[in-house]
Nucleic acid binder design. Structure first.
Lengths: 350, 350
DNA sequence: CTGTTAGCGCCTTCAG
DNA sequence: CTGAAGGCGCTAACAG
């Protein structure tokens, strides 16, 4: 355990040295540099102080402030898999909202639960972070409980948790329904669903959208039409293989994630099933790569920037002591169907 | 500008309250809880203090420590595009190395330069971070200069910068050479290169590997055999289209990034060119998605975990006041060819 | 208009 | 074996 005390080589300017050079008290310097409007400082000294501070490249030490205010003005975004394509927009949205409220955003990789807990401990329990945005996947009650037990605040992204903590969700149901409706519109009737992990709230909501669309069109959902697998490529591959092994093969598939759709496409290629001639499909969530697959993949673009933005602004409210609703839905802009080449009419259409 | 002073609702335990309950001085509590071995505390009081601390869930406040030591024990990893597939292993490696030295790692999204500078300002200049790992792309001299001018330290990942700052690079040249050698081994002679942005050091090194392999085999590199484009899918698409428009179309292509290879595959599909029957290709860098493309993509797996790990341990050395070499190569484990279906014999072979 | 004072939570001499 | 005192850099009363 390295416990050695280390010192930065270059010393940064402090209020003290500026005060000394300007021949005033540190408090005066503080007032000037913060533009404290409750007290007036003479133009002359103000100018002198500002010049010296600028010359020294003075920036206030965040740690001193944090100590004083019990508040660091930084929040963390905990992601289960930092390189997932869908997270980029969430990050951008969160960062924008953070900046609007003078917070800094840092991202924490929680790809392994043990690591997540370790980083979490250092960052939240030791007071480096005022609050945490927790993306679905790594959320556990013990984690969230620990966060709030340490006077930090948290907001859950895209996952509902027993109503004890604030969570923000996208309208998975509407998005999935939109895609299935398109499949129905072009003539499909035997439509299957690659639904994601059975025990996740996200997958459950997407499945609801699928079922809603099927029900509205009075289409049957066979017992083997819904397959639960992981959200990644391997999951899509496995799930598609199961669907293709069925007696009455579906003519179209609604896939609950982009990565799984890539796997599903591969599974089709592997057995010579053509997309969209033999089977149509679309993926939930959009990303640039969809354009470049073979065939290019029709997708549902969700308001992820807004999701990240909303979650962050709620967290900021929480940090301001305001209360926020337990569940917030981000419904605007609406989910959008991005039509590419993976959806066509069913093979038996004529 | 929100400047209101906010207070956490729950107050965290401090040395003071533990001391009070234990009927001792705060300094004694501090000694016990830090396991200070330079001074002995009686078993009885030690036990009492530890019990109370545990009961209160005491964790030392990082901000108070930071203020005292001018050191936060956290380092940042600045990524140009946080969701790039190659970054995941780098992040994991960096995190592992950070933990080994009792540092915490946070990731910063630098996808937009303006944002990067803003986050950077808040995090580095205000002293929230002891040092910064800067991944290629966003590196500018003004940024790095500003970092060290503020008594933070930085290490550049996979990009050399005029010898003024420490940088760590993977062996791009060896990796690219390995792939091209495989193309040559199966019989290709007209081999092109989609080389990435012309002005980046990374692309330049990969191109060197391509040229080295060609030279070793005494194969000519035509003037139109090397195309510079961006590293993303669109870049690969554009570049491949240029190559296919050439008079003597190459029979194989070395692609300097995975995303560009996906774009290149798409460009081939678009004009009915089959991979690998008509054109073979491989991509620099490996990721799970390569397995699920059509055809599955042969790739070069690079030691990215080790890259992140090495860069971080160098940064820690720097923070300890040690000096480190300006340029460090991560050459172990060696680049590895992951053979899949996108490489085959040239069409004119028999 | 400006200085004095006190303290955020922690650690480290130096005395007992 | 333990306590007292001082200070990291900053800000917010309260005095002048």
């Amino acid at each position: 355990v390295a416990k050695e005390r280390k010192q930065g080589v270059t010393q940064r300017a402090t209020l003290g040295v500026i005060a000394e050079r300007a021949g005033v008290d540190r408090s005066t310097v503080s007032r000037v540099l913060r533009n404290d409007d409750r007290t007036r400082v003479s133009i002359a000294t103000r100018q002198r102080i500002e010049d010296i501070a600028a010359g020294l490249g003075y920036v206030a030490n965040a740690n001193a402030r944090s100590l004083l205010f019990s508040q660091t003005m930084t929040i963390g975004l905990l992601l289960p898999n930092i390189t997932g394509v869908v997270y980029h927009d969430i990050i951008r949205g969160a960062e924008a909202a953070a900046r609007e409220s003078d917070y800094v955003l840092v991202v924490i990789d929680g790809s392994e639960l043990g690591k997540a807990n370790e980083s979490f401990r250092r960052l939240v329990l030791e007071g480096r972070l005022d609050g945490l945005l927790i993306a679905s996947g790594v959320v556990t009650d013990s984690l969230t409980d620990a966060v709030v037990a340490n006077s930090a605040r948290c907001v859950i992204l895209n996952r509902r948790i027993g109503g004890r903590y604030a969570s923000v969700i996208e309208d998975d149901e509407a998005g999935m329904q939109l895609g299935v409706e398109e499949l129905i519109r072009v003539g499909h009737r035997r439509i299957a669903c690659l639904a994601g992990p059975k025990d996740t709230d996200t997958a459950r909501r997407r499945l609801l959208g699928y079922r809603a669309a099927m029900k509205n069109a009075a289409l049957p959902v066979g017992r083997s039409a819904v397959v639960h697998t992981s959200f990644d490529e391997a999951g899509g591959w496995d799930g598609m293989q199961q669907l293709l092994a069925n007696g009455d093969r579906p003519t179209a598939v609604a896939v609950a994630s982009l990565a799984a759709a890539i796997g599903a496409l591969a599974a089709c290629h592997a057995v010579g099933i053509r997309v969209p001639q033999d089977v149509s499909m679309f993926a939930f969530h959009d990303a640039p790569v969809a354009e470049f697959l073979h065939p290019s993949l029709s997708t549902i673009a969700m308001p992820l920037f807004e999701l990240g933005h909303k979650a962050t602004s709620l967290l900021v409210s929480l940090l301001n002591g305001d209360s926020v609703p337990t569940l917030t839905r981000v419904t605007s802009p609406r989910p959008r169907l991005v039509s590419r080449d993976s959806i066509g009419p069913p093979p038996d259409a004529n």
